[in-house]
Design a protein around this nucleic acid. Structure first.
Length: 247
DNA sequence: GTTGAGCGTT
């Protein structure tokens, strides 16, 4: 069972075949691509511990070369680590090397599985679209079964997978609300009067979609594209006519 | 210039 045969020969250092995709057929239309840029530099590391942090990966993986980035995706709704991560190298050769050496290694008591990342990173926007009609085709964006707990409520992840000094502190859609004429002070004042018993749970709107929130438009009745605003001057029925007394 | 809701999570 555990006979993970080790390849008798060392890593071929990548011979343009790039097992991109973790040994899967890359692209049939790949002609001559002697470009190193074509080689994958991102590794997908599986079977990570759930409390594994990027720093834990940086050390072992950084031995093979400079890392460009490390990212550990988490469930957007629960914030739980998904157990895998991406490690991007600067040099594809280093990535290949790291993959070969790190695949099967044990980190924090877990045997890692390292493969090449298939697709490029996905953007939040893409993910959003995906949920709309992709992985979960249900109208109810039912999160993956493996991570859906009622007790988790919908707490937006205010976690930071990245230990970098970057400020990824606004995961969910940030909608510009609040009146633009109200000063912070006024706003607060007004808020207190308006919602005296409102808990301070105004932190931020969790993932949109509230189970069955079909109305996503905050103010659909305000159509800016429709008729332009009426004349400011109600008296001036004829703007270009009796506008000037003279002439 | 980028992008953290990245595919392989039980």
């Amino acid at each position: 069972m555990r006979g993970r045969s080790y390849s008798p020969s060392p890593p071929p250092r990548y011979s343009r075949r790039g097992g991109g995709g973790g040994g899967r057929s890359p692209s049939p239309r790949r002609r001559y691509a002697p470009r190193e840029s074509d080689l994958p530099t991102s590794l997908l590391v599986r079977n990570l511990r759930h409390d594994c942090r990027p720093e834990d990966l940086r050390r072992p993986f950084g031995q093979f070369g400079p890392l460009k980035d490390i990212y550990l995706p988490k469930d957007y709704y629960t914030g739980q680590p998904r157990g895998f991560g991406f490690i991007q190298f600067v040099d594809p050769a280093d990535a290949a090397d790291a993959k070969y050496h790190m695949d099967g290694q044990v980190l924090l008591g877990r045997e890692l599985t390292v493969v090449f990342a298939e697709e490029n990173r996905k953007k939040p926007t893409e993910m959003r679209v995906r949920e709309r009609s992709g992985r979960y085709s249900d109208r109810r964006r039912t999160p993956p079964r493996y991570s859906r707990s009622p007790r988790y409520s919908r707490s937006p992840p205010r976690h930071r997978t990245h230990s970098r000094s970057r400020d990824y502190d606004s995961p969910p859609p940030k909608r510009r609300e609040y009146s633009r004429s109200l000063s912070p002070e006024d706003r607060r004042h007004s808020r207190e009067r308006s919602h005296p018993s409102r808990e301070r749970s105004y932190s931020r709107s969790p993932p949109p979609n509230n189970g069955d929130a079909r109305s996503r438009s905050p103010s659909p009745e305000k159509g800016p594209v429709l008729s332009r605003s009426p004349s400011p001057n109600r008296d001036a029925r004829e703007p270009a006519r009796s506008r000037s007394p003279s002439q």
